[in-house]
């Protein structure tokens, strides 16, 4: 009995000692260090490596790229930076068109998401409590079901003998099937559909937190409802608008699955170009250069998103 009590006691002491270690001054450091180091190694470092390999030359072998530096015999280091990958990006119009097209498709889709998502978020935020949670859950639910499968669903709808064409034919709106699948239209539709919840959720978060007495005050001072909306509600929801737009725009620029499954040969987006460089051409350095330029294009949107996240400190928009 005594031994057991002692063992229990010492185990408990050890537990408390460990607990105090974790919550004390050193513990604080440990709590910060673990995710910090993880992100440095698995998130930050990879970008440095991407930059490095984008300056290498493609080789046949494992790994399929040339080393950046080599130690020569007379204790010198030879550094070879190949800028060919970037020159190709600049000279071959295919890449330029793909970048431009990605920015255009992502930009227009973001705008459509905002125009559809804002009224939805507004309506959800202003309904009565009991209904609100249900409506919110219905927005979140598709976001939880497989993205790939939701994109796949559109193939069945948009095919030339698909649901939409059959419906329109039956209604007599058209007399021969429309080519909907493998067009830019399908890509826009797919992106708006997939990313709509990402727009609605942050908008809902800012709109539901808004102080409604501000609108009452505006009305008391003789402001018409639509004017109150433009001058009070809209500016107050700006952080949500920025967060929502960036949550849609940034991933949409690099989207691969949607243009690949729904897009046609001319809906060439940069994510698909990167995928082809990597998987079909096995050109890792070229894929890296494509990624580096994409990141550079996304720096401003990323900074905007980061600022929106920081501002909503503690009240994240998602």
């Amino acid at each position: 009995m005594t031994t057991r009590a002692t063992i229990n006691g010492s185990a408990r002491n050890a537990g408390e000692w460990l607990g105090d270690l974790l919550t004390g001054h050193h513990g604080r450091r440990l709590v910060i260090a673990l995710p910090y180091l993880w992100l440095l190694v698995f998130f930050m470092l990879p970008f440095v490596i991407v930059l490095k390999i984008s300056l290498a030359e493609v080789l046949l072998g494992r790994p399929p790229y040339s080393p950046l530096w080599q130690y020569l015999e007379d204790s010198t280091v030879q550094i070879q930076l190949h800028l060919d990958n970037y020159r190709r990006l600049w000279e071959d119009p295919l890449y330029f068109i793909a970048y431009l097209k990605s920015l255009k498709i992502a930009g227009i889709s973001t705008l459509v998401c905002l125009l559809l998502g804002y009224p939805m978020a507004y309506a959800i935020a202003r309904t009565r409590d009991s209904l609100r949670n249900l409506l919110l859950m219905l927005v979140i639910l598709p976001f939880w079901t497989s993205f790939l499968i939701r994109v796949y669903a559109w193939i069945g709808i948009l095919k030339s003998n698909g649901l939409l064409n059959n419906l329109l034919l039956a209604l007599g709106v058209i007399d021969h099937p429309l080519a909907l699948l493998h067009t830019d239209f399908a890509v826009y539709l797919g992106i708006v559909y997939s990313y709509l919840p990402f727009m609605v959720l942050p908008l809902y978060a800012t709109l539901s937190r808004m102080d409604l007495t501000l609108l009452e005050a505006a009305a008391d001072l003789g402001c018409r409802p639509w004017k109150a909306f433009l001058r009070v509600t809209l500016p107050l929801s700006l952080p949500g608008i920025i967060a929502g737009c960036m949550l849609v725009f940034i991933p949409a620029v690099g989207e691969f699955v949607i243009p690949d499954l729904l897009g046609g040969p001319d809906s060439l987006m940069i994510g698909k170009v990167l995928w082809t460089e990597f998987f079909s051409n096995r050109d890792w350095p070229a894929a890296s250069a494509v990624a580096v330029v994409m990141l550079v294009l996304l720096v401003v949107p990323l900074a905007l998103f980061q600022r929106a996240q920081e501002k909503s400190e503690g009240k994240p928009p998602l």
Binding site: V41, M44, V50, M246, L247, G254, F305, Q306
Partner: peptide, 22 residues
Amino acid sequence: STMVSAPLVMPDVILGLASLLL
């Protein structure tokens, strides 16, 4: 905080390629 929020929006192709090269 940048490293925490950037993966939320970072395009998958970039994350995938970067992780593989790492």
